[in-house]
Design a protein around this nucleic acid. Structure first.
Lengths: 210, 210
DNA sequence: ATACCTCTGTAACCAATGTTACTGCGAAGG
DNA sequence: CCTTCGCAGTAACATTGGTTACAGAGGTAT
């Protein structure tokens, strides 16, 4: 755990802070598909992601989903922080997109450290900042783009975070993330294949030239 | 200026911080329609809103607009903060929705104070938190609601922040904020009128029973 | 092999939203 | 008083995306 932590966070946190994290944090290793958090859950702690990818989803009352963004190594979840401070329930769902390693830090420490460590304060501010912009760009996509563009963006982003040009998803999976329907996604994917941008298979698809 | 500041922020900031703000901040009084900030502008300072309402808009490359949220008294703009920290350009446009009074604080002070004053730190964190949730709810509206629901929500919110059941907007104005078209908005407004929820006039409309 | 189940392809249809075009009204200014 | 201009009403139409329905392909379990 200390090795992993130092490797990923050693250059941004002071030695002393790293030691505190090691003392109070709990190391977790979770498999793909693991559900960290459900909407309405109370927040237990704050995650520091060491490896892997976590996807953050929003859901409305009817159970319709929407992918907000991915967390990658070095990231933490601002939503979590936002919730902690208000002592509120989670507004989002978090699911491991790949196998992942992370450290959970108790929420009380979070506030204590913001007064004590400048590096921690900057880390937290920076996370907010990054997430805010991420959300903004998600909003842009939904507000200003059509489904075909959103689909292409989705495939690219997914390939980027998983570092794999093969997307291991069914059409239905994609439809959920984009808050669309399977038939629509199949239709658009077919068009992309005809344009030579992708190659379709059962249960996965290859990106060729997006 | 000191009066206004103390009235609005006196109970959340220490005396000492208030004094600092008075020393380095510049008081501004602006009329309705004043444009604080354009997309791509460099950020000069951070606004502390004392009275009035400011609307925050997002715009894409084609000039299509979208209302993100309103700032009210006691609010500050997290977007600004997010931009300051990264020394970036503005991602948004800010326009006075009503006459407004505010204090501009130089951005260097912002970081200094986060280390020095707990109340300031909490204020900044809280702003981030509030804006993040505001953005999230804007996203919900766009992703999960139909235009008629969004329109109703828009009218209600606008009446709330301006404390006025008369909305002084043309159909075209509303269409811009919702990123729709004038004809669509006219159509939906007409339906709302037929349902007895609003009363239409030239250049303004009354909310009756939303 | 057979039965079953999931995933994909496709067609027909519908609803919501956006677009274009034209009309008339009312306010403002000459 | 008349003209002009911006705003609102409305119809006809196009496009996008969502829904329903069904067929076939491929994999899995018995």
């Amino acid at each position: 755990m200390i090795q992993d932590l130092k490797e990923e966070y050693g250059n941004i946190f002071e030695e002393e802070l790293i030691n505190e994290i090691v003392q109070v944090g709990t190391f977790k290793e979770v498999p793909e598909g693991y559900k960290f958090m459900e909407i309405g859950d109370y927040i237990r702690g704050m995650p520091l992601l060491i490896s892997g990818v976590i996807k953050i989803l929003r859901e409305d009352e009817d159970g319709d989903e929407l992918l907000l963004y991915y967390l990658e190594k070095g990231d933490t979840c601002s939503m979590t922080m936002a919730c902690c401070m208000g002592d509120k329930k989670s507004e989002i769902r978090a699911i491991a997109e790949t196998d992942a390693k992370l450290i959970m830090v108790p929420i009380q420490k979070m506030e204590e450290w913001t007064g004590k460590y400048k590096s921690w304060r900057n880390f937290v501010f920076n996370s907010y900042h990054v997430r805010l912009n991420e959300l903004l760009s998600t909003l842009d996509n939904i507000a200003f783009q059509k489904m075909d563009e959103r689909l292409i963006g989705y495939l690219k982003e997914k390939a980027r975070v998983t570092k794999d040009n093969i997307i291991h998803s069914t059409h239905q999976d994609i439809a959920y993330d984009l808050h669309s329907s399977r038939v629509v996604i199949s239709r658009l994917l077919k068009k992309l294949e005809e344009m030579g941008k992708i190659k379709l298979h059962r249960n996965y698809l290859e990106l060729l030239d997006l």
